[in-house]
Amino acid sequence: MIKEQTKLDIDNVDVFYGKKQAIFNVDLEIKKNQVTAFIGPSGCGKSTLLRCFNRMNDLIDICKVSGSILLDSVNILDKKLDLVRLRTKVGMVFQKPNPFPKSIYDNVAYGPKIHGLCEDISELDEVVEKSLKSAGLWNEVKDRLNEPGTGISGGQQQRLCIARAIATNPDVILMDEPCSALDPIATARVEELMQELKKNYTIIVVTHNMQQAARVSEKTAFFHLGHLIEFGNTEEIFTSPNEIKTQDYITGRFG
């Protein structure tokens, strides 16, 4: 058994917004059951790249992606790829907690329902409970599943969104600055959750919080102006990076 199995193989990816190139020739391998952090200054393309992994960029007309991204050896940039299937395999958690204005239960059940993943109500109940448990939220909300998902605290909302993402049983979870709107305690909970989740999922997290990247990830990729500057073990990146640009960024020396 290979210890570090490749989950996502990103090869020669370029992203254009109209005529503006946002990502330049990025090669990257995301390992299975690890947390990979993307760091870099605003506008460096880290979120753009993240959104390539579930083809969220398709929502933007002028966005063109080239190169190849292999998810378990299937090129997800293939035009003929079934986006619905891809997005059930690659879940996403966003910067601001964005639960649907529905009940907590319906929020989690949303994905399984629209994909018809459950035969009957009891199976759906099971999926909802399992997802909420995985997201570490079950004990806090089990008595109020019918209350609106927007009524719980920000940290709980974000974990609800994580539960919603894992309810469709994905392989990969993308997190786009998942803690930027949360207080430190809620942040710590989500980080703890990430450690728990990586046993079953591959996690890619975009973050502006360097300490967070250092805490939660095994691998870190540093982007600058659309280029992948450095990619390596998190410990090395944060103690002795190879590139001056990486060092300047993580030590707060950037212009």
Partner: peptide, 21 residues
């Protein structure tokens, strides 16, 4: 908010499902 649309697309909903639900 756009974030609700993204959330829905993010779990694999189609456009019409997102609109309806």
């Amino acid at each position: 908010p756009q974030s609700l649309r993204e959330a829905s697309f993010g779990v694999g909903a189609t456009k019409s499902e997102t609109i309806k639900k």
